[in-house]
Amino acid sequence: MRTHTSTDARGRQTGRRHPLASIALITIGLLSTGGAYALMTTTASAETSVATQQSVNEGQKIFAANCATCHGMTASGTKDGPSLYGVGAASVDFQMGTGRMPLAYQGPQGAQKPLQFTQEQIDDVAAYIASLAPGPAVPDEKYLAGDADVALGGQLFRTNCAMCHNVAGAGGALTEGKFAPSLKGVEARHIYEAMVTGPQNMPVFSDSNLSPQDKADIISFLKFQNQHASPGGVDLGGLGPVSEGLFIWIFGLGAIVGVTIWITARPN
């Protein structure tokens, strides 16, 4: 470049312009802008693809060591575990992020347990699974803040979720040892992911069924319930009349029978 400009300058000094100078200038201009553009865009994409590729590679390694026994080396599933093509990053983030995966044992339903991996490792596996086939991604933060319509969320929750999870989110029994877990203290992200991916025995609530805004409403309702202690005092587990009945028999009537014994006890 510099050599060209210097020849230009020399040409001007001699008072003559090289006949090809204009063409050269245009060529240089086109080349530099196009090249710079191409260079900049390619470096940007190259950087991200390197990071994802790293993450995917890392995820694949973690997957091969911890998940492949049941899901197969290529995540295409075996008789012990389903194929993970198309389950998406959201599914991985939910299953591993709540400690359900890897499973402690094969059973009707994987139970929540202490996390086996760091969030970074989980993200890597999620990236790997997402790279295999398109699927639901980890949800956007804006749906998880819990500042949406609580009352509407409650209504949606009662219509769509309460038949298994109980109106107060206390959980409930399903058939053959399966169960809908309690929703107390579950992170907003995991609630959203569960709705999108339908983990274990839960049905999928797709975006055409419950829009992302509906999901945000439900999350807000659950957050509202979690954050506000029961106005009436200790809630006895939110189990409804069963715990109330046990309580009145054992502690209510128990206390009063104690008093009757005390009253009728003779002074000696």
Binding site: R158, A162, G171, G233, L236, G245
Partner: peptide
């Protein structure tokens, strides 16, 4: 004073379509 009973605000208004898991009558 200390123990909630029948927290109706949790249950929402009646509507024949929803039903809750763990629905029991009083003892």
């Amino acid at each position: 004073s200390f123990f909630t009973i029948n927290p109706i605000w949790n249950y929402g208004p009646y509507d024949p379509s929803p039903i809750s898991a763990g629905t029991q009558p009083d003892w």
